[in-house]
Design a protein around this nucleic acid. Structure first.
Lengths: 228, 228
DNA sequence: TTGTTCATTCACTCACTAGTGAATTAACGC
DNA sequence: GCGTTAATTCACTAGTGAGTGAATGAACAA
């Protein structure tokens, strides 16, 4: 680039305002999309909740679809990187002998912690992700785009932990794991009613306590069965 | 997919015509809702696909919401009763000593068979159910309304099979099971890409082969851990 | 044959949707 | 202070949504 681009220090007031408004829009859209889906939310709904004119959303985000994708992408990169790092750390720790439960813990517990500690925004994002994941329309595509690398990393570790296991069994096992995780993040309140209040949809700690153990046993049983 | 042809059998009674048209509308709506969700489908979309005027849908079904609920309810009763019967049969067979895997097989395999053998309509319904299950808006409510009895029946059996197990563990275990089942029925095509074609989203037989075993081991591991 | 019933369409209404381009307002940088 | 730039709103467009009540026309019952 021959032209000297002048990177002026953005005056804080405007830049801050811009960032703040965009964040508010993203947060609100995230929440509303997580409750009603893409088509169930209008730009006016979002604008009204934020307290700005609805065309401001077109000003900041190309169009509605772009807004949706930006909402999704914003946190996808965070959770993806976090889990990737957790898997790296785990592998560095155990070298060539990972266990199924260890790998699953690196993957699942890291994420569940994020949703536990990340505040309302993260919880809304979880619900959005869960909905996206079970939507044929763009579900698969968006999950692929954002999460394939981490997932394949996990699967690599699982293969190492279960060297005799058929690949299909590992993929189906992973499929069961995501299904369970997604329903957890969906936070629909169903388990609350079903259990008469004994369990709570938003009790990620309870899930963390059980999930990796539960799923690890599942992997082992299916793989050993098929080996014989 | 759906043929836009009106089958006007001269000899058929009006009642038959009525039923046929309503079924076509239900089938089409079922498919479209399963792909795009409630708000992602317009009555015109449905009407156009069926090949009738869009106001005919208001004639047969009070309004859009009622159509959606009718679509959902139509097959909910079938799968619910089928699984209920399977659980009854299983209990009659094994009396007072059910196993976790046995109970899960009665519940899961019966349903997976239905989706395998039931044709396109059932597969669309499965995808719809999966989407509904992870939607906070009405998800929990609709699942509660239609499936609570069977689910509590299953949970009763699981408690019998695991008398020492903490109730929370059983509920969370069931939660994992549904999550996995729902993602299966969602049929998003994600596992296909992820596994490089090794596994196929619509291969319910593959799921049936693994799921009950996998989940039963999960229950056992979590319950035994907590007992100690 | 005729009058009735009912599936189906038609002509509209009213509200709302996403998006655009011009206008306004406030903050910057000089 | 002054011209510039960016945030925000305003006035509109063009199109779509669900739903209603009247009209059509075919089957049916007498």
């Amino acid at each position: 680039m021959a032209t000297a681009v002048k990177y002026r220090r953005k005056s804080s007031a405007k830049a801050e305002q811009r960032a703040a408004t965009m964040d508010q829009i993203l947060d609100t859209a995230e929440y509303l999309f997580s409750q009603h889906g893409f088509y169930g939310v209008t730009l006016k709904d979002v604008a009204k909740t934020v307290g700005v004119h609805h065309t401001l959303i077109n000003y900041y985000f190309e169009d509605k679809k772009k807004l949706f994708e930006d909402v999704f992408a914003r946190r996808a990169v965070v959770t993806s990187q976090r889990r990737m790092k957790a898997l790296d750390d785990y592998e560095n720790e155990v070298g060539n002998s990972p266990t199924v439960e260890g790998a699953l813990r690196a993957f699942l517990d890291t994420d569940l912690d994020l949703y536990t500690e990340g505040g309302e925004g993260w919880r809304n994002y979880g619900a959005l992700g869960a909905q996206v994941a079970s939507t044929p329309e763009w579900g698969a595509r968006m999950m692929d785009e954002h999460f394939d690398p981490v997932v394949l990393r996990l699967i690599g570790l699982l293969k190492k932990a279960l060297p005799e296991c058929a690949e299909e069994d590992i993929f189906w096992g992973y499929h069961f794991v995501t299904g369970a995780l997604m329903l957890t993040l969906a936070k629909t309140g169903r388990i609350d009613k079903l259990s008469g209040g004994l369990c709570r949809s938003d009790d990620y700690a309870a899930v963390k306590e059980r999930m990796a153990t539960f799923m690890a046993a599942g992997f082992l049983s299916v793989c050993s069965r098929r080996k014989s």
